[in-house]
Nucleic acid binder design. Structure first.
Length: 658
DNA sequence: GCCGTTTTCGGCCCGACTGTTTTCAGTCG
């Protein structure tokens, strides 16, 4: 059993305990253990013989270690079995519905014997639920809507989850000798926010027709396959335990480009492209672009060949939605799309001072190693009590601390740059860690990023940094990290994420905000306000001259909450007029502005920033998903403010401080 | 159930909102 499965079972047990009204702290310890297991870079199955190794993981004590050993040896554990005597595993689905918490799940089970979504829907429609305590008409309406949304979304996977699964499978398939390239096609390659299934296309000597059967067998026997759906001559289809369907195609090099083009889609883009081919006396299929009259192959080995043969510039996958990209490609008017390497700063992140995990210095070093030149630390303000939000006094103390850490870092960078120039290890212990990470990553240019097990557990950053290495030639990757340029420069800007209260006021004093370089104002509560109230509230917040960035402007969450009711058009216009930048939240869970919003922002000449809202160092990597969404909105580096090379240049482009 | 220390047990983020009540439980972030 792998770590992911262990983590899932521990997390499920926590949910079952919740339904069972167990001690909340016991429940939390199961959740924490699940998270800890998930984050381990070594497989627990390889270290479970050593009792000390498990206990060394924070969050794993004697009891949890025993649970893990049980899971590894028997596939289950006593507590889980005991709970499954009382409850059904399908109840865990009910917990994902809005308004359905553990207590309500337990209630409908004891009162109506309802344990799954279909049953709950039937009970709701039959009017059985309104007889129960605390459940009225409104609740039922919300619930039925929630069930509908859940059904619509649950068959799709968020892009980052899909990418993780793709990376894992790609590594397993690459292990087979003679496979040179394997690339995800389909909506994952186009960078859609959610992905229905994975299409993986492999090529190399082992994929040539006379020998491909051995590679097909290898793929069909991958350990992570839950159900094998089909195994053909050069195609294998299967599902994973989470029901994600994966189609792997093994293709000869000669037709790889045609296949990649065909399976990347979108469907409408392909239809338009084939029509264009026919007009030119050609025919396009997944095997090749052929001349109709004599079936001579015009192009097939690479996508660029195919587009060029159709008198088109190469069209990046993100634009292939039949949204004007063919016309633009025909007239050489495709935009120069933004890439991850263009982003020089990240202006929204949290630290341990509130609900983040890492320190100011750790966030700064992690950003530095990712090629950024500046960050802003923007912890929460007091109204978000659950995050330990900062009141005025603490906020002022915090930015003093940020300035101190920045000053220290400036000194350290001087020493580090000297060491790098002379190529001699530094004597300063504060920078020896940074030195090691820089040296580790640059000395391993062939490091393969997608294999997390290769990452040293004590130095996760090294693997992150090496991510920029080796990409297959067919993979025009916009999310490659930029190489570091010497001398290293870096600035930490003091900031805050203030809360916009129900009436549009901010929850900290102007005198406090005046001390901040970056003030991000965000809505965190009262989502139930009517659209005009919500719009007025945000407009009022924008009037505060200290506000420089409007944080997560729509409150949208991918596969989660719908955006709150707001007149985004009005907001964007006003933000543009006042010079307040709007934030695109790069986190794949809450890509706040969808591509439509982003185009609207550009149309209104809005300043746009892209931030990760990271709560831990590794979340800085989520920037790549945000970049993908910007590309889908046809945005260029010039459209985004934090492509500015330095903190000074960035600040000059933000709304001037009063 | 974990952790840390005060070595044997107490603390572990908590406030706001919702729909239902008529004073609050449950959910959410």
């Amino acid at each position: 059993m792998d770590n992911i499965s262990i983590a899932r079972l521990l997390d499920e047990t926590a949910s079952l305990l919740e339904i069972d009204s167990a001690d909340p702290f016991r429940i939390r310890s199961y959740r924490r253990a699940a998270e800890a297991v998930e984050q381990q870079t070594t497989q627990l199955s390889t270290i479970a013989d050593d009792p000390k190794a498990l206990l060394a993981i924070p969050g794993i004590g004697k009891g949890m270690a025993a649970n893990i050993v049980f899971l590894l040896t028997t596939g289950t554990m006593p507590l889980r079995e005991e709970l499954l005597q009382k409850y059904k595993p399908t109840m865990l689905d009910l917990l994902r519905l809005p308004g359905m918490g553990p207590k309500t799940v337990a209630l409908v089970w004891s009162a109506c014997q309802v344990c799954d979504i279909d049953g709950l829907e039937a009970a709701a429609k039959a009017g059985h639920l309104t007889k129960l305590p605390r459940m009225g008409e409104k609740f039922v309406i919300k619930l039925l809507k929630g069930i509908e949304d859940h059904r619509k979304n649950s068959s799709r996977f968020r892009i980052d989850k899909a990418q993780q699964h793709a990376d894992t499978i790609i590594n397993l398939i690459r292990a087979f000798p003679g496979i040179d390239e394997i690339i995800p096609a389909g909506s994952l390659r186009r960078g859609r926010e959610t992905v229905g299934d994975l299409d993986l296309l492999a090529t190399g000597p082992a994929c040539e027709p006379d020998v491909v059967s051995a590679a097909v067998e290898h793929v069909a026997s991958l350990p992570l396959i839950d159900k094998l759906i089909a195994k053909g001559q050069n195609k294998v289809s299967f599902t994973l335990r989470n029901n994600l369907q994966v189609d792997v195609r093994l293709l000869p090099g000669a037709s790889y480009g045609a296949a990649l083009q065909y399976f990347t889609g979108s469907k409408m883009h392909n239809v338009a492209l084939r029509q264009r081919a026919i007009k030119r006396g050609l025919t396009l299929s997944e095997y090749a672009l052929l001349r109709l009259e004599d079936n001579v192959i015009v192009a097939a080995a690479s996508e660029a060949d195919i587009y060029n043969a159709l008198d088109l510039d190469y069209i990046p996958p993100e634009l292939r939605e039949n949204g004007g990209e063919l016309e633009a490609a025909a007239t050489h008017n495709l935009p120069q799309l933004i890439t991850l390497a263009d982003i020089r700063g990240d202006l929204h992140m949290h630290t341990e001072a509130t609900d983040g995990r890492d320190t100011i210095r750790q966030m700064a070093e992690a950003a530095l190693l990712r090629g950024l030149n500046y960050i802003a630390i923007t912890d929460h303000s007091k109204n978000l009590a659950m995050t330990n939000g900062l009141d005025d006094t603490r906020a002022l103390a915090h930015i003093k601390r940020i300035r101190e850490v920045d000053a220290q870092l400036q000194q350290d960078l001087v020493a580090l740059n000297e060491s790098l120039a002379r190529d001699t290890p530094p004597t300063n212990s504060r920078i020896s860690n940074l030195w090691d990470l820089l040296k580790t990553s640059s000395s391993r240019p062939d490091h393969n990023i997608a294999d997390p097990s290769q990452a040293s557990s004590s130095r996760p950053e090294a693997a992150h940094f090496a991510a920029a290495a080796e990409r297959p030639p067919h993979f025009a990757d916009a999310t490659t990290r930029p190489p570091l340029t010497l001398p290293l420069t870096f600035r930490i800007l003091p900031g805050i994420e203030v809360d916009i209260l129900a009436d549009g006021a901010l929850d900290l004093d102007d005198s406090t905000l005046a001390q901040m370089d970056i003030v991000v104002a965000s809505v965190h509560s009262h989502f139930n306000q009517a659209a005009d109230e919500m719009t007025a509230r945000v407009l009022r917040a924008l009037e505060n001259p200290h506000v420089r960035i409007l944080g997560h402007p729509t409150g949208r969450k991918v596969l989660g909450r719908e955006p709150y009711a707001i007149n985004i058009d009005t907001i964007l216009k006003q933000a543009a007029k006042l010079g307040v930048a709007v934030e695109h939240n790069a986190s794949p869970a809450r890509a706040d502005l969808n591509d439509l919003h982003l185009r609207l922002a550009k149309k209104h000449n809005c300043k746009i920033v892209i931030n990760t809202d990271a709560h831990a160092t590794e979340e800085l990597d989520q920037m790549r998903y945000g970049i993908t969404q910007l590309r889908r909105a046809w945005l260029s580096p010039a459209d985004i403010l934090n492509t500015q090379p330095t903190a000074e240049a960035l600040l000059k482009n933000l709304r001037p401080k009063p």
